[in-house]
Design a protein around this nucleic acid. Structure first.
Length: 186
DNA sequence: CGGTTTTGACCTGCGC
DNA sequence: GCGCAGGTCAAAACCG
């Protein structure tokens, strides 16, 4: 089975990928033995922002350095499962969120991903515990907890209110265990 | 039958 | 204190 997480691992900083496994192939059938195709790959570049609330849509911005790094990594490591022609248009964006308490150390981070699927396989097992409509967003926000025993990581998933082709996934806290997919990763 | 999802109720923080 | 909005709980329903 091909490693569907490898490309994003290289595209995102290791500090993020150590704790968040973002699946760059949300449309890819992991149970198949085929390598992901370009149609499986999400249009993605990503971005990192600090101390910005998710509600502030204008705060999303882009990091070309990250794109270039991702491109170089793809080339250098020969990992091009459908990613080679899409790198410059990648659209994953991420940011830290410290809305509740500015002085509190926050390990919140949000990814904005262009995807038709709301539920993207990020390598962890999640249990849904809530669904809520939020103000100024016609789309519902879904609440998930990590199913791993003793792990308190939560995530929320909602569609971008301005562009419903994007999915905003916010991770809260850090996993105290490895991804179940880590074995096929190394 | 056990794990997951659904969904209304409840809790909490914040602004006024 | 009150109302609003976001987040969580927990019982029931659902599903493999």
């Amino acid at each position: 089975m091909p490693n569907a997480f490898h490309t994003m691992d290289l595209a995102l900083p290791s500090t993020i990928m150590d704790n968040y496994f973002v699946n760059p192939y949300p449309n890819y059938d992991h149970s198949s033995n085929l390598a992901p195709s370009s149609s499986d790959f999400i249009l993605s570049d990503y971005l990192m922002l600090d101390d910005i609330g998710v509600d502030n849509q204008e705060s999303w911005s882009q990091s070309t350095e990250s794109s270039e790094k991702a491109n170089n990594n793809h080339v250098n490591h020969g990992l091009n499962y459908g990613a080679t022609s899409k790198n410059n248009n990648n659209n994953i964006k991420c940011r830290n969120k410290s809305k509740r308490n500015k002085t509190e150390k926050s390990s919140r981070i949000a990814f904005r991903t262009k995807s038709e699927l709301e539920i993207m396989d990020d390598g962890f097992k999640w249990r849904k515990y809530g669904k809520k409509s939020v103000k100024n967003n016609p789309n519902l926000r879904n609440y998930y907890k990590c199913s791993f025993e003793g792990c308190s990581v939560k995530k929320t998933v909602e569609r971008d209110r301005e562009d419903s082709s994007y999915v905003i996934t916010t991770y809260d806290s850090v996993h105290n265990h490895q991804s179940p997919f880590i074995n096929c990763y190394i």
